[in-house]
């Protein structure tokens, strides 16, 4: 039976010894999107990807990938997915072209087709010029791109990318982002893990936040942002006494403050009447607030807020 979802995970549990890494993870990823699993170090991202990609078995729960059960249909799942791990999985002593051709032949392509597919991918990932060089001579970014290309040789339905840009400098990371963005819409479902919020924000159609072995939030990036208080009102004050008195009045409502810049930020929904009322409250004589601005919350803020909320429940 095929389903519409690329991934359907229900109640997935996994422990290493006494350490419970996944505590009932539920997740559904629709086909054809770029999906990002976001979480701090140690949240269980890699474990999740290893279970989804058949490399590790869950202790409990069920996982279907590309419509097939990863436990009972392991071999067929493997023919429909690819994994690009945190450690590059290319042979440094083989050239870029040889690496891709080898993977193609292992995936069941005839030699000639494997060579054609390798050329196609080298071109797509901007590696044609380096095709004949050993992968050991590649820069970190090039090696990662080659690795990603190797994952796509067999035209998988679902491609897992475990922290595809960790350890890369900014230009290399941006090059990788371009490559991944280009893949969106090609029909392949991309599941990437990251601890860079900006990366999830840039690339993903949907983001799930993983913390302490469970999904604590799941949705489109902008919906997630709205979930946690939406926007911020940033106020800048004229003098230090003005700043101090405003801080006294706002007390807990102040989300952050910057004594040096004389700035305080508070949560807001952007409603004009409420902003005006707040300004009147802290600045009745209209000489304390020099300027104000309304910002959308960054995914960073969302992430921290979600994790704080999650830990305060425990």
């Amino acid at each position: 039976m095929t389903t519409d979802a690329a991934i359907e995970a229900v109640g997935v549990r996994k422990a290493f010894g006494d350490h419970q890494v996944l505590r009932g993870l539920d997740l559904t990823v629709p086909r054809g999107i770029v999906f990002s699993l976001l979480g701090p170090n140690g949240a269980g991202k890699t474990t999740t990807v290893r279970i989804f990609s058949t490399l590790s078995r869950a202790d409990g729960g069920s996982v279907r990938v590309a419509g097939l059960d990863v436990r009972t249909d392991r071999q067929r799942v493997r023919s429909r997915i690819s994994l690009t791990g945190q450690y590059t999985a290319v042979d440094v002593a083989q050239t870029g072209e040889e690496n891709l051709q080898m993977v193609g032949e292992l995936a069941g392509l005839r030699r000639r087709d494997a060579r054609r597919r390798a050329e196609e991918l080298l071109d797509q990932f901007d590696l044609t010029e380096a095709a004949g060089r050993r992968a050991g001579t590649y820069s970190g970014g090039m090696r990662r791109r080659l690795d990603l290309a190797a994952g796509l040789v067999g035209r998988p339905e679902v491609a897992f990318l475990d922290e595809p840009t960790s350890g890369l400098d900014l230009p290399a990371r941006q090059a990788m982002w371009r490559v991944i963005s280009d893949l969106a819409g090609s029909g392949v479902t991309i599941v990437l893990t990251t601890q860079y919020l900006e990366e999830a924000d840039q690339l993903a159609d949907r983001v799930a936040v993983l913390n302490d072995g469970r999904i604590i939030a799941d949705g489109r990036p902008h919906v997630l942002k709205q979930q946690v208080g939406g926007r911020r009102l940033e106020l800048t004050f004229t003098t230090e006494p003005a700043f101090d008195s405003a801080l006294r009045i706002l007390s807990h409502r102040a989300l952050s403050r910057d004594q040096h810049a004389l700035a305080i930020s508070v949560g807001t929904d952007g409603d004009a009447a409420r902003v005006r009322a707040l300004l009147d409250e802290i600045d009745p004589d209209r000489d304390r607030v020099r300027s104000f601005a309304v910002h959308d919350a960054s995914l960073d803020a969302v992430f921290l807020a979600l994790i704080q909320k999650d830990s305060s429940h425990v």
Binding site: Q75, M102, E105, G108, R116, R117, E120, R155
Partner: peptide, 21 residues
Amino acid sequence: PGRVSEPGACGARRGRVMIAR
């Protein structure tokens, strides 16, 4: 072209590719 048949290369083929590697 390039469509992959399930479930990947057969055992002997895989062995051969690994030997070459």
